[in-house]
Amino acid sequence: MLKQKAFMLLCSAVFMLLSQSLQADEARTSSFQVLVEGQGKAIILIPGLMSDQRVWQQLATALKPNYQLHLINLAGFAGTPALSTPVKLTEVTAELADYIRHQQLQQPVLIGHSMGAFLAFQLASSYPQLTGKLIAVDGLPYLAPVFSRDSATTVAQMAPQAKMMQQYYQQMTPAQLAASTEQGMAIQVSRPEHAAIITAMAGASDPATVGAVIAELLTTDLRSEVHKIQQPVLLLGAGGAVASEIMRPAVQALYQQQINTISQARLDFNWQARHFMMWDQPEWLLAQITDFIKE
C-alpha cells in the first residue's frame, strides 16, 4: 500500500511538472501564431503593424517550393486574438528566440516588413547566434526619424508624442481604426484591391494593441544595438511615395544612417514601390530576396 501511494504521488508530481512545462511553452508563444509551409532552409516572415500573413501570400507561393516558411501572426493584429495586456515587442522578440530554439531552426533567414523589420533587427541584435541573414522590407531599427525627417531625433524627444498617440488609439473603435488607415492609403499601396485588404486587416485589429506598439516603436531606438548583428543585412527602401526626385538623396541618407554600424549591410531602394512593396513590386522583391539568400 505504501509503495502504491508513493507511486501515485510520484505520478502526480510528474504530471504537475509536465503541465507546468506545457503552460510555459504556451506562454512563450502566446504573443504570436505560426503557419509553417514548404520544405528546406527556414525563413521566418514577420508582417507589419495591423497586418498578418496575407501580405506574404504571393511571395510565399514563390518561396515555399525551396524553403520552409514560418509565417508569423501577432496577437491583436488583423483578427489574431489580442492578449489581455497588449503585446510588447521586446517580449515578442524573446518568444521568437524561444521558438527558433524549440523548433531547432538553424539560423533561419529573417524577413520583416515595417514593424516586422524592426522585430527582425531586435531579434538579430539580441540573439546574433540564433539568426541568419536579415531582409528588412521598408522597416528600420528606429521609426521616429521617418516622421521627423531627422536622424538626430531622440527617444526623449518622442516620448510625449508616443504617449499621446497611445492614448489616441486606445479610444478608437476598430471601425475608426480602419477609417484612419484608409485615409493614409496613398503612401501604403497603389492598387485598390490591396488597399481593401489593408483596410480590412486594420478593422480586425485591436486599437489598444496598435497604440501600445506604436508607442513602443517611437520610443525604442535600436541603432546603438544593431552593430551586434553578425549576419548580412539587406535593407529595402520603398520610395514610391516620395514627393519628388529632389528628396530622394535625403531619404536614402536617413535609411543608410540606421545601418551604418552593421558590418555586412547594404541598402537598395525601389523608387516605384510604396510601403507594401510585396504588392507594388512583387517580382523585384522576390528577385532581391532570392539573390540575397543565395549569395
Results as ranks from 00 to 15, higher is better:
residue 1 M to V: 03
residue 4 Q to G: 08
residue 8 M to Q: 12
residue 11 C to E: 02
residue 13 A to P: 00
residue 15 F to H: 01
residue 18 L to M: 13
residue 18 L to T: 09
residue 22 L to T: 08
residue 26 E to M: 10
residue 32 F to V: 11
residue 34 V to Y: 00
residue 35 L to N: 10
residue 42 A to S: 14
residue 47 P to N: 14
residue 48 G to V: 07
residue 50 M to H: 04
residue 51 S to K: 07
residue 53 Q to A: 14
residue 55 V to F: 04
residue 61 T to W: 02
residue 61 T to A: 15
residue 61 T to L: 09
residue 64 K to A: 13
residue 64 K to R: 13
residue 64 K to V: 12
residue 65 P to S: 08
residue 70 H to T: 10
residue 70 H to P: 03
residue 71 L to I: 09
residue 77 F to M: 12
residue 81 P to A: 15
residue 83 L to K: 08
residue 83 L to M: 15
residue 85 T to H: 11
residue 88 K to A: 15
residue 94 A to D: 15
residue 95 E to I: 04
residue 97 A to M: 03
residue 98 D to M: 08
residue 102 H to Y: 06
residue 108 P to A: 14
residue 110 L to S: 04
residue 111 I to V: 07
residue 112 G to C: 04
residue 115 M to D: 04
residue 116 G to P: 02
residue 131 T to W: 03
residue 131 T to Y: 06
residue 133 K to Q: 15
residue 133 K to L: 07
residue 138 D to C: 07
residue 141 P to E: 10
residue 154 T to H: 04
residue 157 Q to V: 09
residue 158 M to N: 08
residue 159 A to L: 07
residue 159 A to S: 08
residue 160 P to Q: 13
residue 161 Q to R: 08
residue 164 M to T: 13
residue 165 M to P: 00
residue 168 Y to A: 15
residue 171 Q to D: 11
residue 176 Q to S: 05
residue 180 S to Q: 13
residue 180 S to W: 08
residue 183 Q to K: 14
residue 185 M to V: 07
residue 186 A to S: 11
residue 188 Q to L: 15
residue 189 V to M: 10
residue 193 E to K: 05
residue 194 H to R: 02
residue 202 A to R: 05
residue 205 S to R: 01
residue 205 S to A: 13
residue 206 D to L: 06
residue 208 A to I: 11
residue 210 V to W: 02
residue 212 A to V: 06
residue 213 V to P: 00
residue 216 E to I: 09
residue 222 L to D: 06
residue 222 L to P: 01
residue 223 R to L: 12
residue 231 Q to W: 05
residue 233 V to S: 05
residue 233 V to P: 01
residue 238 A to S: 15
residue 240 G to R: 00
residue 243 A to E: 11
residue 244 S to V: 11
residue 245 E to R: 07
residue 251 V to E: 09
residue 253 A to Q: 15
residue 253 A to K: 08
residue 263 S to G: 10
residue 272 Q to P: 00
residue 275 H to M: 12
residue 278 M to W: 03
residue 279 W to G: 03
residue 281 Q to I: 03
residue 283 E to Q: 14
residue 288 Q to R: 15
residue 289 I to Y: 01
residue 290 T to C: 07
